Amino acid sequence: MRAYDAAMAASWAMLPEAIEQLIEIAARENDPTPEALEAYRAARADNGERLTIRGNVGILSAKGPMFKGANLMTAFSGATSYETLRRDLQVALDDRSIDAIMVRVDSPGGEVNGVDELAAAIYDARAKKPTWAFISGQGASGGYWVASAAEKIIVSDSAMVGSIGVVLGITDRKKADERSGISRLEFVSSQSPGKRPDIETDAGKAKVQKLVDDLGTVFVNAVAKYRGVTADEVLKNFGAGGLEVGANAVAHGMADEVGQFEAALARLSQRGKNRAFIQSQKRIFGYA
């Protein structure tokens, strides 16, 4: 499958302009070869890891467009893989020198596929080590989904936060095929009438819309759970699919405070040390 077809077939929790940019890259006639991409990857190897350690804090970098797994597009664009972040998160949890975890987000979002698993893992990590998120630049759509799972969200003054929702694009190539003299015949098993909904009919459009709405509901419910509010509150106060900037995001309950990364890191470091000390005392004195 060409990169263009894969991009068009996916569901996205991502800013529209970022999706358009990815589609444009995928649609280029002269697709990059695996060899060229491997050379590009090698040149950036020093920056390829998503986990770094500052003192006693492990920092996970969720930067750029996000995909479930590493692929040619992630290698070419320097995007983030959910699976890589999940593995690095486990490393941070297992490393006894790391007392706390900071998820540093600057992302327009990404694929729906896989983001729920990463967010759930971040949410579970809160019970093991203090886990905060810091958003600078963008924490949009899938990027916000990931950040919302942390116990505290700190945003920079100009951070753009939100864009809660799902987008699914379908390309109708019938006219282009007709101009090219291409005739396509497709047979679908009669037991599966919902497998290829006809988007030229109202019924077909309704089926596709329901799919997108169902995915959107999963997104909203996840944010509600992670932020400790109801789904109705998310729908009412969290931008309705739009973005809020800095302090406005805090006022709407989408984030907890405005701050700077270094100051937030220092506070998280101390919180991690305090929790580690308390846990050590419990072990010494046999507390539950």
Rank of each mutant, 00 (worst) to 15 (best):
5 D>G: 12
5 D>V: 15
16 P>R: 08
19 I>S: 06
19 I>L: 11
19 I>A: 08
20 E>L: 00
22 L>D: 08
23 I>N: 13
25 I>Y: 15
33 T>C: 10
35 E>N: 10
37 L>T: 12
37 L>Q: 14
41 R>K: 14
43 A>Q: 09
49 E>N: 12
54 R>V: 10
55 G>T: 03
61 S>L: 01
64 G>R: 10
65 P>M: 12
66 M>H: 08
70 A>T: 15
78 G>Q: 00
78 G>E: 00
80 T>G: 05
85 L>Y: 04
85 L>K: 02
88 D>C: 04
93 L>A: 05
97 S>P: 00
98 I>D: 02
100 A>S: 08
103 V>L: 03
109 G>I: 09
112 V>R: 11
113 N>D: 12
113 N>Y: 06
114 G>E: 07
119 A>W: 02
123 Y>K: 07
128 K>F: 11
129 K>P: 02
130 P>I: 02
135 I>M: 09
138 Q>V: 05
140 A>V: 13
141 S>E: 13
142 G>T: 07
142 G>Y: 03
142 G>H: 05
146 V>Y: 03
147 A>T: 03
147 A>P: 09
151 E>K: 02
152 K>G: 04
154 I>D: 05
156 S>C: 11
158 S>A: 13
161 V>W: 04
163 S>W: 00
164 I>E: 03
166 V>A: 04
168 L>A: 13
172 D>K: 07
173 R>C: 12
174 K>I: 05
177 D>I: 10
185 L>P: 05
190 S>W: 15
191 Q>G: 14
193 P>W: 10
196 R>T: 14
196 R>C: 14
201 T>R: 12
202 D>I: 15
206 A>G: 06
209 Q>S: 09
212 V>I: 11
213 D>A: 15
213 D>E: 14
216 G>E: 04
221 N>L: 02
226 Y>L: 00
226 Y>P: 01
231 A>L: 07
231 A>I: 09
236 K>I: 00
239 G>S: 05
248 N>Q: 07
250 V>D: 03
252 H>P: 02
253 G>Q: 04
255 A>Q: 02
255 A>V: 00
258 V>N: 13
263 A>I: 08
271 R>H: 06
273 K>Y: 10
273 K>A: 14
275 R>Q: 13
276 A>Q: 11
278 I>A: 08
279 Q>N: 11
279 Q>K: 15
279 Q>L: 15
280 S>D: 08
280 S>Q: 09
